[in-house]
Design a protein around this nucleic acid. Structure first.
Lengths: 121, 121
DNA sequence: CCGTATCCAGGACGATACTG
DNA sequence: CAGTATCGTCCTGGATACGG
């Protein structure tokens, strides 16, 4: 019942977990799937600017980590749905907070960046 | 006073903020500075496995974004301290949650990865 | 509709050596 | 102690074209 994992340890497996969470598009996919299952094209449209390749890689990695499930409903044209697992939904909680922080503090960050760029005065 | 920023928009500046948060070492530095100011060597020792170069780059980027302040206390040998700003402390809240999620769900993720690697049965 | 194949550019990151 | 300099590698991820 003690603390088994510590991200500060160089070889702790929690490092790989953190790395996956921090991957470029993971936070977007998790937030996008908050409302319910989505199809590939729906995700691609929702997450503006992502390429099919990046989306595919992100989905595959998240599926391998048990964060979402891919359901092929067959048919023609194909119909594939992606939905968060319970594990993925639990990740939604902290990642939604991260997203909200990012959106809330844009002005602060931009102001700081401008200040950093103007060394002379 | 509606929602001004949305990470799902391709050109929204919140994207760059999210990118900085998701940068490999940001979460480690923020968590490390939770207890109070630290020196360069202290940070390097605390965050096992980080190189001086990566730490320097992370600190510079976070300083430019107003997440921390660098204080050069002079002297010889040099004495430099890094401390979270109010903005950085506010980021601590969601990032601590991310860290805790990562440490808590290592077994789930590892189990999922093993399952993903064993397609035959 | 749901991807894959291929190529390629840029940046992150590590190793190592060195400095005020 | 607190970095910088240099080099090289890996990997992300974008563009484009194509396939089931």
């Amino acid at each position: 019942m003690g603390k088994a994992y510590n991200v500060m340890a160089a070889t702790c497996p929690s490092r790989t977990v953190l790395h996956r969470i921090g991957a470029r598009w993971t936070v977007f996919v998790v937030n996008a799937l908050e409302a319910g299952p989505m199809r590939f094209t729906g995700l691609k449209a929702h997450i503006r600017g992502i390429t099919a390749k990046a989306l595919t890689e992100t989905l595959r990695a998240m599926e391998a980590d048990g964060l979402l499930v891919r359901t092929d409903l067959g048919g023609n044209p194909p119909h594939v749905e992606y939905a968060l697992t319970d594990l993925g939904r639990s990740l939604l909680v902290p990642l939604r907070a991260v997203r909200q922080w990012a959106e809330a503090h844009v002005p602060d960050i931009l102001a700081a960046r401008e200040r950093a760029e103007a060394p002379a005065d």
